[in-house]
Design a binder for these strands. Sequence first.
DNA 1: TGCATGGATGTGACCGGTCACACAAGCCCC
DNA 2: GGGGCTTGTGTGACCGGTCACATCCATGCA
Lengths: 357, 357
Amino acid sequence: MDVTGHTSPGRHSGPGQEPRKAASIRDVAQAAGVSYQTVSRVINGHPNVREETRKRVEAAIATLGFRRNATAFALAGGVTRSVTVLTSNTTLHGYAATLQGPEEAARAAGYSLGVKVVTPEDDLDRTISSAAAEGGGLMVIGFDRLGASALRRVPADVPCAAVVEAPPHGRTPPRPAVWADDREAARTATAYLLELGHRTVHHVAIPTSDGTRRSAGPRAQGWRNALEQAGITPPEPHGGKGWNAQAGYDEGRKLADTPDVTAIPCGNDDLALGVLRALHHAGRSVPEDVSVIGFDDAPHSGFLTPSLTTVRMDFQGLGRDAFGLLRSRLENDFQHPRSDIRRHRADHPRKLGATDA
Amino acid sequence: MDVTGHTSPGRHSGPGQEPRKAASIRDVAQAAGVSYQTVSRVINGHPNVREETRKRVEAAIATLGFRRNATAFALAGGVTRSVTVLTSNTTLHGYAATLQGPEEAARAAGYSLGVKVVTPEDDLDRTISSAAAEGGGLMVIGFDRLGASALRRVPADVPCAAVVEAPPHGRTPPRPAVWADDREAARTATAYLLELGHRTVHHVAIPTSDGTRRSAGPRAQGWRNALEQAGITPPEPHGGKGWNAQAGYDEGRKLADTPDVTAIPCGNDDLALGVLRALHHAGRSVPEDVSVIGFDDAPHSGFLTPSLTTVRMDFQGLGRDAFGLLRSRLENDFQHPRSDIRRHRADHPRKLGATDA
DNA sequence: TGCATGGATGTGACCGGTCACACAAGCCCC
DNA sequence: GGGGCTTGTGTGACCGGTCACATCCATGCA
């Protein structure tokens, strides 16, 4: 509507924030009349500190508002517990939902999570290497071309895990990765439509992660396979140019004019939404004249009228698994960097225990 | 649909990743036959290095795959250039869009961005202080109760900026913040409905950020104000219990039964979507029988059938502004550890201008 | 009494960068 | 031809934590 929210922000410069430097472990030590090492012991819950000393140190910590400097901690060899997610998008449902996996897992595991959105404009190698320099691991969402190429350029020595499109048969991603069986899901959905009696099934595809043929993505492949298994020659696939409702609408206009189009599984829910609208504008009713199926189960899909049938994908689980993969890589690294003495230190309960978070 | 995507992930353990320790500045120095300081000069582009020496160092950097350790850099006093966003949600459109602001701004400004999702379960103070310990600034999205209370608990010495609901008249947020004028936007939208000839206007509200009365949020207030200005006694507001389409549907069922309900501006697009569906189920048609207006302009809203009229809010701009606020705070701090010169620098065009993005 | 044992605490070095400063060599100028 | 300036390079200390090891003191036990 033309009633547009007015967003020139109200500003408030806030109560005076004194930029005094944060208290260090040494400041606390001095205040408590002990050595810095004792303070370190207290903040790490080391047992061998006299009760009274501990009290004193804790008091000093409280009055000085001491917080352990995470940077120094990391530098001194403390576990890094940080992961940066590289993605080209954060708003499309698939991406956002995938991102929720690590968000939640990171919170649970006491990791800090960074998000870096990559764009076609910026220098991938620079972006990646700056992300890698942060110290923790890298998690790449490689659903699209940009993400996939980012994944390919992660240096071999950087701990990394990815969520990707299901790779073509016989090929494996360049790095440890997880994926969902989109191909099978699309095949099943298409087969279902055929069972309903449709003579053929048309597909509006999402862009592929290698940026090439639009029939190459696993979802398109699944659709194609289902048709072939039923002895039907797949029609030319549509789409492949965009992910959003507008792209779906554009393709939908074309499809709406073709009479033999009665069933349209789409590469995602947004495309499906656009297709629905195009069909509506063309006077073809859903689901009477045409069946439309979405993909991804975006949160609003269930509330559309008419309802959009959709294929649910567990993106969050995927993201969580990738995070887990990366985490185990990171923590294994930590436990056996090379030699043997370390291993002894690694079993120290404080390092591995769940209480550390 | 019952055709559910199969997501047990295919896994691939990837090519052997040797966990060799990353090369340090000293390693490079040794390889190039210079001192570590010279290496530091080269990577920082310091002019006083002989051309031939620079070449040698650069070669060593390349062969060793040296990357400057961001942790050590930060510890040694390099600017931190990192911001952590605290939010209770990342998927609702308002939040996701707000988050895009700092994502983009951070990329442009070479900042790294952390995201921390807070939940009612976890210990806010711990979460905040661990986020603060990362070193950079804190940006809080305080649209809801949880976010608002997080904002209140950020220690005074932590650089911080927030995006909040428009505060009640005469009150200011506890910390530097930006907000949109939701109240005015809602008032205008409601006035528009009244102009169309509706006798009264009902409202389905989003939850408020102080967790209390459901008529307290700025959007509800704007709706109420418009009615009062028109001499109409506002009916009891609905909603206030949830943000999503299901919540909208629940309220919509109730409203659909009341004959005098002919206009329903909703607190956000998801609620509106649910209301639309409830009206449809109840056999009341939109827009013939009832006018529904959303709020936020979520990306799919424009593609619904019938179209959802919605009020566009520039969340991304809001997020960008908050980031800018925080950034100037961080960089001022860095440049002038305390005194007064601040005011002068705050008007620096680069800080406030639109070109910064 | 003599010594091993172990708890409580302090000192020094280190992580990987930075900055401040010292120093040597080359040049200019009076 | 020696004082000053500039350029290129190296040394030492520091950021704020950690770990390894040394020390002091109170025990327990032979």
